[in-house]
Design a protein around this nucleic acid. Structure first.
Length: 383
DNA sequence: AACGCCGTCAACCGCCCAATA
DNA sequence: TTATTGGGCGGTTGACGGCGT
């Protein structure tokens, strides 16, 4: 189909916005709302195209935008979500309150990507660059199945992101309530994805369960493979290319399990954090392990059973802690082997016993995340 | 002081999708 | 059913500033 660019008209200004233009746009939106973006520029007296106005508003002028440096927590969230979702910046942005997709995208491209590369991690796949762990037949089949789950989860998160944004438009004065106040949608796609709004953390639950299932089956060597009977999960979102998501999903595991990101203070950013990411001391690890093991290890699949065991608080915070502590317990060897600043795995360093140990730890790791997720269903997260 | 290199980030571009006529 | 439109998304560009030579 295609459409002509909205900024083709002669006389429309391009390039950086002046304070006067900002003021005009702000004043107009505050008084009238944005309404139709195409009609807005003439009504507001701006020599800009509607698209330019919309971008200026959403990425810069909106009052609920947080500017300035990203905290370590935010960085970790971005990395984790990127491992799961890939370059779905808008979906990632929905989990980082007050950050725009554009800002996150820029931050990823200019900071995080380089940092991961420096650590010997492929920023696209989130794998250690020489990784060979998932080449085994059984594991690869499980991962392939799991990728369908990741695909489904990814699609759901995407839809969630869209609807949250719609909700924001409707509730510009009270963004904090946006998820809870989403109106029932009449569109078919929204009906399909309605369960998304049970809770944002519910979105994480399925994929975490899936991981747990795969790791559990791998470890126990269950013949049927994946707990879904025939071992071939049909993707409910068949129109979506599986390649990217498959990569992302398996890599999420790889990143979490194979790479340690140290816990540095939120005040530290940039290069300071680079250092600490690469140099996690053993005491910290031991403490993390203790905290990690302190979490209930009950049933992995029954949500109801787990609620009473769980710590309360910010799910994402706990999730991040788990990522850090788990990666320390099970895989810090890998980083040590690879050196501090170039943690590249040597293929011949991956032997069978290490592999089994790692899978034990990873199983526990995901069990614990499941517990946290389950608890968060009762205790709504902040994002 | 002049120049080049590099990192950052606001803004643009082209495409896609859902809604609607 | 098809064409059109509006809005959104992700990739890319280019202006700008800091830094080193």
């Amino acid at each position: 189909m295609g459409r002509s660019p909205c900024c083709d008209k002669v006389g429309l200004k391009k390039g950086p916005w002046t304070p006067e233009e900002d003021q005009k746009l702000l004043a107009y939106i505050e008084e009238h709302g944005h309404g139709s973006w195409r009609a807005l520029p003439t009504k507001a007296g701006l020599q800009r195209c509607g698209k330019s106005c919309r971008l200026r508003w959403t990425n810069y002028l909106r009052p609920d935008i947080k500017r300035g440096k990203f905290t370590l927590q935010e960085e970790q969230t971005i990395i984790q979500l990127h491992a799961l979702l890939g370059n779905r910046w808008s979906a990632i942005a929905t989990h980082l309150p007050k950050r725009t997709d554009n800002e996150i995208k820029n931050y990823w491209n200019t900071h995080l990507k380089k940092r991961l590369t420096k650590m010997g991690i492929d920023p696209v796949s989130h794998k250690p660059k020489n990784d060979t762990l998932l080449c085994g037949d059984g594991q690869s089949k499980s991962v392939a199945n799991l990728s369908h789950m990741a695909q489904w989860e990814s699609a759901r998160l995407e839809a969630e992101a869209r609807l949250v944004k719609q909700s924001k438009l409707r509730c510009t004065s009270s963004t904090e309530k946006m998820v809870g106040t989403i109106e029932p949608s009449s569109t078919t796609s929204h009906k399909l994805l309605a369960p998304v709004f049970e809770s944002p953390t519910r979105s994480c639950l399925d994929i975490l369960k899936a991981w747990n299932m795969v790791l559990g089956n791998k470890h126990n060597d269950v013949g049927s493979g994946n707990g879904n009977g025939d071992g071939d999960l049909e993707s409910p979102t068949s129109t979506i290319s599986t390649a990217g998501v498959r990569e992302s999903s398996s890599n999420f595991f790889q990143f979490v399990a194979g790479n340690s990101s140290g816990s540095c203070d939120d005040r530290n950013t940039g290069e300071e954090c680079d250092q600490e990411w690469e140099c996690k001391d053993e005491n910290q690890m031991a403490n993390s392990i203790q905290g990690f093991n302190g979490v209930s290890m009950s049933s992995t699949n029954n949500n109801e059973d787990n609620h009473q065991h769980m710590p309360s608080g910010n799910f994402l915070e706990s999730f991040t802690d788990l990522l850090l502590s788990s990666s320390s317990t099970s895989n810090h060897r890998d980083l040590e082997a690879g050196g501090e600043s170039n943690a590249v795995l040597e293929p011949n360093e991956v032997n069978d016993s290490n592999y089994d140990d790692d899978n034990n730890n990873n199983k526990n790791y995901w069990n614990n995340i499941l517990d946290l997720v389950n608890s968060s269903l009762q205790d709504p997260p902040l994002f």
